[in-house]
């Protein structure tokens, strides 16, 4: 097992290098001048000074080599647009908020999704089941921007529940964005758990366990739930990765100063170093989330260790 984990961890290093190379290559394809922010033309002298200052006058391979070297020393370089800030500052200040938002939404999805699905499966075809599945199907299908807009309209503007419309300060400000972001994965988890639980309940060994007179409650907790959680674990990695790296819409609507909001503006402003830095960071999140899942999976289902390297 240790060997498996060590191998998987080492494997992330070439992955990150490839991600840097890909992002670097793609960014270079984008036309646009990071220094021309308004319709005003930049005089040639000033353009030259700027290119020189940020090393953009060097050939691309030199820029890449320098960048990789800097990343290796955890220096993501200065922002080209936010002239007094380093990418490191931006990550340090904004990333924890995205992490918190994504993490809380993920927890919300797990904490409400799994019981919802489990109850649905155990009470299959009851009204409870219908209601729960109805809720999760709709929750999954409605785009998050509509959910967020409805939340703000009804829970803040029409009826005052004490939530602010925007920002990321006290817990009050976090409730609506977290629920708006977590609704879809919650619904997905509920459906997933319901489906696999129904399937597991049909299995022979469960029937045997029941026939042997094991107490029903114990059977559920030991066998059924445990088995049904395997697909949830598998789904959890990509979901967590997606929630942390994909909260652009929620961050925009609720004016949350996370990296998602920064990312879009940075791409549009051609702030190469910020885009590079944040992409590498987001890739690391996805990689780590996948890594954790693989390891968890290896623990839950030992067969995978041999097949997957």
């Amino acid at each position: 097992m240790t060997k498996f984990i060590v191998r998987r961890v080492f494997w992330t290093i070439p992955v990150i290098l490839v991600v840097i190379l890909l992002t670097f290559g793609l960014m270079r394809q984008i036309k646009g001048n990071p220094f021309r922010t308004s319709e005003r033309a930049i005089p040639a002298e000033i353009q030259r000074n700027l290119d020189r200052k940020f090393g953009l006058d060097k050939p691309w391979y030199e820029q890449y080599a320098r960048y990789v070297k800097n990343v290796a020393t955890f220096d993501l370089g200065p922002s080209l647009v936010l002239r007094n800030r380093d990418v490191n500052d931006i990550v340090k200040e904004h990333f924890p908020r995205s992490l918190e938002l994504g993490g809380l939404a993920f927890l919300f999805a797990l904490v409400f999704g799994i019981p919802l699905g489990a109850v649905s499966a155990l009470k299959a075809n009851s009204w409870l089941d219908y209601a729960a599945m109805f809720f999760s199907n709709v929750g999954f299908a409605i785009p998050s921007f509509l959910v967020a807009t409805l939340f703000i309209y009804f829970f803040v503007l029409q009826f005052d529940f004490g939530f602010p419309t925007s920002g990321w300060t006290g817990w009050e400000s976090k409730v609506l964005p977290v629920v708006a972001l977590g609704l879809a994965p919650m619904a997905a988890f509920a459906r997933l758990v319901r489906g696999t639980m129904l399937e597991t309940l049909q299995q022979d060994y469960i029937r045997t366990a029941r026939a042997k007179g094991l107490r029903w409650r114990r059977v559920i907790s030991l066998h059924v739930l445990r088995n049904s959680l395997i697909p949830v674990v598998t789904a959890a990695g990509p979901t967590l990765g997606f929630l942390i790296t994909g909260s652009f819409v929620i961050e925009q609507i609720f004016a949350i100063p996370g990296v998602g909001r920064y990312y879009v503006t940075a791409v549009q402003a051609r702030d190469y170093s910020v885009v590079m830095g944040l992409t590498v960071l987001l890739a690391v999140i996805v990689i780590v989330a996948n890594l954790v899942v693989d390891i968890l999976y290896g623990i839950l289902d030992p067969r995978t260790r041999d097949v997957r390297t």
Binding site: I152, P164, T165, S166, I253, F254, A255, R261
Partner: peptide, 18 residues
Amino acid sequence: GRMITDGTTAVQAFEAGE
């Protein structure tokens, strides 16, 4: 001073008294 870039969000914040 807040920094709200989205116009609709800013209007909502104003209407909520923020």
